[in-house]
Simulated assay, not measured.
Amino acid sequence: MRASDSTATFWRDPVLPHIVTRRACHSRACYKAHSHPTFSIGAVDAGGSVFTGSGDAAVRLAPGSLVLVPAGCVHACNPLPDMAWSYQMLHLDAHWLQQHAPALDGDTARVLHCPDLYAQFCAMNALLFSAAGAEEKDLALLAFLAACAGTAADALPSAYKPVPRQLEPVLAVLQAQPLASLQQLAQAAGLSRYQLIRAFRAATGMTPHAYQLNAHINRARSGLQSGTALAQLAHELGFADQSHFQRVFKAHAGITPGRYRS
């Protein structure tokens, strides 16, 4: 299945549920800091972009760069100011990756500078978008991942930090009550709201509110793929209305939920 807007095209297939991939051309879309439950591989095709993780460091990516982003890594990758860029982004189910390419699994984002590997990624992604069979596509993906594992990478500043024990009840509340208030979260940690915001951001790279929004959008992706109506999703995820949901979704995903679903 393909879904596209003026710059982006998605591909996914229920026969290969561990893969979602996209291509974007001449895009000016900017993303808020976010994370995915998937392992992601990005490729810069044209223009310049800046990759930021949960730390303060920013890394400039050039055409031909590949960046590997672990599941759960808080990051953003945006075009240089007043410029457009073209890129590809592959998302892989994290459990599938652990089973089939464990050498790539980790907690640190990495950049690969290898023209041959970039060309192999482009060919593999083009194959995914083609009418080729599922087995041929899966084999091409596995071959690419094996090549990645054998290529030296520049490690970016680690986004992984062990969550302090004091914040573990907060994560438990967020898991059980996705719409929990800041006051409820602060009470779970035994902190003031201000103290919680500072401690939570230092540990996760996001404020509690941003963390909640990111979790809502990741749940929305699954709901959209299963066909849940936009209005129902907006209500279930606690958005003020459908327009609010659409604005937040696009800020995180770079595409409207309607386009993503179709």
Rank of each mutant, 00 (worst) to 15 (best):
S49C: 13
R110T: 07
L80Y: 05
P81C: 03
R2E: 14
T207L: 03
E136L: 13
P81W: 03
A203W: 01
A24W: 07
C148M: 10
H75P: 04
D107I: 05
A234G: 12
H252K: 03
Q212Y: 05
A172H: 14
L156P: 12
P169M: 08
F144A: 04
A29S: 13
L224K: 06
H36M: 06
Q212D: 09
A58I: 01
P63H: 05
A186Q: 09
A234K: 02
Q187L: 15
Q195E: 15
Q184Y: 01
Q195I: 07
Y31D: 01
P63T: 12
A134G: 06
L196N: 07
Q195R: 14
A149Q: 03
P208Y: 01
L117E: 02
A24C: 14
H26S: 11
L61W: 07
H113S: 13
V50H: 05
S40M: 09
A234N: 13
L61H: 10
L224Y: 07
L128D: 03
A146C: 07
A29T: 05
A103F: 06
A8H: 07
Y211K: 00
G42A: 15
A253L: 07
F249N: 02
I41E: 11
D107N: 09
A143H: 02
P79F: 04
F245N: 06
A76M: 09
T204H: 10
H209Q: 10
G106D: 08
R12P: 13
S4D: 12
D13T: 13
Q120N: 11
G223V: 08
G258R: 06
P37Y: 05
D93V: 00
D241Q: 07
L139G: 01
N214D: 11
R193L: 00
S6M: 09
S243F: 00
S226M: 12
D105P: 00
F39Y: 10
L191K: 14
L112N: 05
F200N: 10
P81M: 06
C114A: 15
A153C: 09
H91W: 13
G72N: 05
P17Y: 01
G258P: 00
S222Y: 06
H244F: 05
E236I: 12
Q242F: 02
Y118A: 15
A146R: 09
H113G: 04
D138V: 08
Q98F: 04
A62I: 11
Y31N: 01
P14M: 10
K250W: 02
P81F: 00
